[in-house]
Nucleic acid binder design. Sequence first.
DNA 1: GCGAATCGTAACTAACTAAGTTACATGAAA
DNA 2: TTTCATGTAACTTAGTTAGTTACGATTCGC
Lengths: 149, 149
Amino acid sequence: MKRNSRLSSTLHILVHMADAPDRALTSEELAGFIHTNPVVVRRTIAGLREAGIVTSSRGHGGGWQLGRAPDRISLAEISAALGETLLPFSTEPESPGCLVEQAVIAVLDDFRLEAERLLIERLSHITLADLTADFRRRYDLIGVSSHAV
Amino acid sequence: MKRNSRLSSTLHILVHMADAPDRALTSEELAGFIHTNPVVVRRTIAGLREAGIVTSSRGHGGGWQLGRAPDRISLAEISAALGETLLPFSTEPESPGCLVEQAVIAVLDDFRLEAERLLIERLSHITLADLTADFRRRYDLIGVSSHAV
DNA sequence: GCGAATCGTAACTAACTAAGTTACATGAAA
DNA sequence: TTTCATGTAACTTAGTTAGTTACGATTCGC
């Protein structure tokens, strides 16, 4: 798994889970989809379990499943559950007392607040169901074109 | 300079430059403002010079000055000149041929395109002059309150 | 109950990124 | 010509995150 691809990798995993709703997928299987290690998968999606997006079960036949229907899981929730900010630029004071820095931070924090609101708003309108629908469309297209050849 | 604070540090530097329009500030001085090394400063704002946001002169009495009036320098330009994306999540394919991944990437890239457009639009309405105005307001407030004590 | 399968998690290692540093060539001014 | 400054390459250091190993806890099938 490359750097900064946790959101993309997690969505990849979740769509595979949505595509096999009748059984639990193991960390091993999920890791295969994104070419990484089962432990990395467990670590990455641990936060999704706490958010109710997925459930996990131990022991023989255990693994991971979606916690609710794909059309009730938004990318905004997934992103939040991953615990990463969309806008990672820092506004930590490094020169406390410098009025120039205070002005800069004030403006940047305002911008960040407004920007995050906008981004989350947009992500909340995209659901896992939209992703699976897009996947199935591609799948059907390939199927048709294979038949045509 | 902390990690992920290049935008904030650069703005800090630029406001100081706007506040001393009559003379060139050396990398050494600028480095002092953000508690780092002169070479780091030169490296960081090299891109701003190419964008015409600042000018640099060598030799005795040399240093850095704004390339044009603060009210004609927007945060959007500065951010772009720094060469960092505001939304650093990756959408590089890691499993070419996987239709699930293709669907995920397509949706994320759409989102990124729209999001970046929005962010840049907003940043283009904030200028260096706004930052210096905010700074001066704070400066005057402190002055008043010092007098009051 | 026993053994196999699976998650949960801690601890460690490896790889990567970005800042910090040193060094020196280039250029401009006194 | 000396001094002060940028430009830039090369290297070092620090911090972050993925990857790995190990092992305990839990669950199912037999």
